[in-house]
Design a protein around this nucleic acid. Structure first.
Lengths: 235, 235
DNA sequence: CGGCTCATGTAAAGACCGTTCACATGAGCT
DNA sequence: AGCTCATGTGAACGGTCTTTACATGAGCCG
């Protein structure tokens, strides 16, 4: 995965021009954010890692914030792709696919903590960046579309929940779990279950509160004879 | 609210010794974090605001992180007090009090954004600070205690949900809503409802998913004849 | 009251960072 | 071959964090 023209030995031989500095800086920034958090990340450090002078990055990014915004942008794009794939247009059935979206959300936060912090925890001025906002909107649109389909399936006899509200609820649950329990080298708090299971149970209970059948067997309905809880069977 | 000995005209006459520097620094830091976020906050700025030299703060805090940790600590204490008051030992009834705790959580995040960011978004190494961890644990214990009481009320015929899990769920919902939609000068995203209503609906739906009656009339049970949704009546 | 001590403040300095500016280089086009 | 302009360099400015040596004076002890 080297972009160098000839040798790929780090930063050794290189002409006056780097050739792919913008990409190299984004990659370096990602590495640094992964290691030291978005606050600890340093513009100068990224330049050093790419083997250029501290002033070089300014040819590609107006300032440090624009670099972070670029990373967030890219993050939202990957995020959208991942969610789209997880949703898979509601296959094989809406509830299963919906659950998968929740899991994908958490998986992204855990596997790409650098992207995730750039996207949600870097304190960027939201209004200052319309294209970033649009990217975030597109990612959220996946969740919203899934909620739309789910809402349409609301069991008769129940009031139909607003899809937008459902989407916001799911988002807040996922973000809450990801942000509180999802990252950190070790679990910063002892949990009785994995973040994945925690989120899955949360979403299932929520869906049940809306009247959806949450058994895994397709076609199963909400039964009234001591249904098993979504948090696993007591052993 | 002046701690100065005589004049309270900002930073004017003051002996060689400040007299209450630690307190003044904490207050200044709070103001600065409120204005510019935890990242924008500067140790030197706080010193300036207190009218002392940039080196003075080091007599009271090992470094910048320790100041932020102190603020977080204080935040957790106020947070705990607020949650305790909201819970009010489950009066007048458990579900109502539980709802109130959720609202109090959000209210704290909105009214004390500086504390909130110091507590949850400052990226402090969690393990490095046992007393901070303990303070956070005490605050969470309120939510957990409330969940415990609520779980004990689980309607017969339903499996009893683990209180710890409920507490974590409620926490993640509250934090998710607060962190995504709660702060920001303007709403950084157009919402169909206020964050308060959004969270209230989310918690009510969740509780209903656990089998709790969520009507406001005490004693009302989950009915099967077109119950009103917790998100407000369609007009 | 006189003097001692030590917590608390200051000044100066080093290392680092973000940012800008004048200048150097060479890739790509004509 | 020669020109041009995007891209990289070096030096510099102001700011921050932090340490070190020194100054001050509040509180105590006799």
């Amino acid at each position: 995965m080297s972009w160098r023209k000839d040798k790929d030995d780090g930063r050794a031989e290189r002409g006056y021009h780097h050739g792919n500095l913008k990409e190299a800086l984004l990659q370096a920034a990602l590495d640094l954010i992964t290691k030291k958090g978005p606050a600890g990340f340093t513009f100068a450090d990224a330049a050093r890692m790419a083997g250029v002078s501290p002033a070089a990055p300014y040819r590609h990014f107006r300032d440090r914030d624009e670099l972070i915004a670029s990373i967030a942008q890219r993050g939202f794009e990957q995020f959208e792709a991942l969610l789209t794939q997880a949703w898979d247009d509601g296959r094989p059935d809406t509830v299963t696919a919906f659950e998968r979206v929740g899991k994908a959300y958490l998986a992204f936060a855990r596997q790409e903590p650098a992207f995730y912090s750039a996207m949600f925890e870097s304190g960027l001025p939201a209004d200052a960046n319309p294209t970033l906002m649009a990217a975030s909107e597109r990612a959220f649109a996946i969740i919203r579309a899934a909620a739309e389909r789910l809402a349409a399936l609301a069991p008769p006899g129940m009031p139909r929940p607003p899809a937008m509200m459902m989407a916001l609820h799911i988002w807040s649950m996922s973000h809450g779990v990801a942000s509180l329990f999802g990252r950190g080298d070790a679990a910063r708090r002892k949990l009785p279950m994995s973040p994945e299971d925690l989120l899955e149970a949360e979403v299932l209970i929520y869906l049940r509160g809306l009247g959806f059948p949450t058994d895994r067997r397709p076609g199963a309905a909400v039964s009234d004879d001591k249904p098993a809880g979504p948090w696993g069977k007591p052993k």
